[in-house]
Each structure stands twice: as structure tokens, then as C-alpha cells.
Design a protein around this nucleic acid. Structure first.
Lengths: 146, 146
DNA sequence: ATGTGTGCAAAGTGTTTGCATATCA
DNA sequence: TGATATGCAAACACTTTGCACACAT
């Protein structure tokens, strides 16, 4: 287990225990691949990644595992403008937003307390009680606008 | 023609002429329904809306019309967290963001120059050249948190 | 022994496409 | 007349589900 994802495994083990999940080699492998990838993956990409490890896992199992992680609150599905549906790791309490390159598809993360502040203000003006937000900036990354 | 959408029809007519589109009653009807609805619609909702006018239009034609409008830059497809794919009118030069009620699905619009400003700052720090952004705030609307 | 997980294939969704026919210019 | 549009059904891509079998506890 990589130290970096200690928080993940602790949270997942807890969830697994509470929900009577069993340990299977497939799920372990899928999650390992997902974590290793630094994780902004489509289900299909994860499927192929797992296949490179030589073990045959059904695509359905990939989806089931991702849905389990989503239910555990450790993974989030993100619908991007370019029609990619990417899954990403969610570290509880560490919110971040994304900036996506329209040319190469690269995804970077950031977070801004100022933006958050003004979101609350705007929402308050409209009488909304804010639960969460999703901000995506689309642009051209440094590598692509040379 | 409703005065409010003069800008729309001018833009669309220009696009239509340039691209040799023909005037058909179906397309006219679909667009009328779309404009009348104040427009945050799924393809399917628009389909049903058109049907209430008594004329039978194929669902495929709805999609083709929406795609045409998208190509003309007058309509935008928005993938929401709740898996709705809503189409909305885009008035060139008038950018706005959305706040969506997680309970009733209501969508309100807003725009904030402050948020825009900080987005540019954040993107600049990462070396990105910003093209556009998409901000969605999810929360509970006034009517739902009584 | 029981319940959970798996692979596969089939079913589901939402959207697009092929084709014959109809319509506009 | 010739290009564009339409309706329908079939094709599509992505995701979920049913089932029989396997495995973890």
C-alpha cells in the first residue's frame, strides 16, 4: 500500500466492513490501477489499464467497482464538455475544481477560496442554500499554446 | 415573431442563408417551442412540448434541429450532475452561469464579474489561456427549503 | 452454508444515421 | 430539377442488469 493513499484505504475498508463487502482480487486490482493512474479516467480507460496487468476483468465489474466507490463517496463521476465521463478520486474535505485543455484534453486541478466566497454570495442573493458546486474552466494549456 | 428574440432570428436567418438551410414548418415549430419555453430543456421535453401543438414531429428531427442550432452557436448543450442533458439558448456575448436545485431541478441563472476575474487569475497561474468556463452551483432553492 | 462478487450476454438509455420519401428553392 | 429535410427504424455507444457459477467469510 502506497502511503499516499492511506486515507483512501482506511475510508474504503471502513465502508467495506459496514456494507459487508468481500475482498476480491478483481476489485483490489481495479482500485490499485485507478489509484496508480492519478485518476481522471473513463471507465473504458480503466478497463484497458487493468487488462495491461494481464488479468481478465469484465467491463461490468469495472462499472460495479466504480459505482461502489462512488457510493462510498470516494470517487466522483464528472461529465465533461467533450463528452468524456471521467471518474476521479475525491478526498473528503479537499474540494478542487478543474481546468481542461480543449486541445489535448489534459486536466489540471485547482482551488480558490475567493471564487468559493463569491459563489456563496451569489447563491445567497438568489435565496439558495448551497450544497456544492462544480467549476470547469476550458482553455489551452501551456504545452498546447506554444 | 416575438420582439424579445429578434436577435435570435437575425442570427439564425443569417446562418441559415449561409448554410443553404431550407425553411420547413417542422424546424420553425421546434424553434418556436424552444424559445417559448424559456429554454432549459431536454430533447425529450422539447419533443413532448412540440407534440402538444398537435403536429407530429420525429424525435430525430428534434435532435437534428438542436444540433443545427448548436452548430450555429445559438444553443448549448449542458450536462448536468443529475444526468439531465439540457439545451439552452445562448445569446452571444451574454455569458451566465447556473444554480440548480438538487430537490426540484429548478435552474436559475446568474453572472458574476468577480468570479470571472478570479477564474482568469487562477488560470493564468497555471499557464492556461482561458476560452470559456462552466460553473454550476448545486443547492436548495428558496421554494424547497421552507 | 450463506451471501457477495464475477463474467458474460442481454437489455436499457439517449443520440445518431441510413434510407426512402417529401419538400423547398 | 436538385439539394435539403423528414419520419421511421435500425444502429450506436455507454452503462446496467439477469443469470449461473465462483468465491469469501
Amino acid at each position: 500500500m502506497i502511503e499516499e493513499y492511506k486515507w483512501f484505504w482506511e475510508a474504503f475498508d471502513q465502508y467495506a466492513q459496514k456494507n459487508h463487502l468481500k475482498n476480491t482480487s478483481q476489485r483490489k486490482l481495479i482500485i490499485d490501477c485507478f489509484l496508480d493512474s492519478k485518476a481522471h479516467l473513463e471507465a473504458d480507460e480503466l478497463y484497458n489499464l487493468v487488462k495491461t496487468r494481464g488479468i481478465n476483468v469484465g467491463l461490468a465489474t469495472i462499472y460495479r467497482t466504480l459505482n461502489t466507490l462512488k457510493a462510498a463517496g470516494l470517487v466522483q463521476l464528472r461529465l465533461l464538455d467533450d463528452n468524456r465521463n471521467v471518474y476521479e478520486l475525491v478526498e473528503p474535505g479537499f474540494h478542487h475544481d478543474h481546468i481542461i485543455c480543449t486541445q489535448c484534453g489534459r486536466i489540471d486541478e485547482f482551488s480558490s477560496s475567493e471564487i468559493k466566497k463569491y459563489q456563496l454570495k451569489v447563491a445567497g442573493n438568489l435565496g439558495y442554500f448551497v450544497k456544492y458546486h462544480k467549476l470547469e474552466i476550458y482553455g489551452v494549456c501551456p504545452a498546447c499554446h506554444k
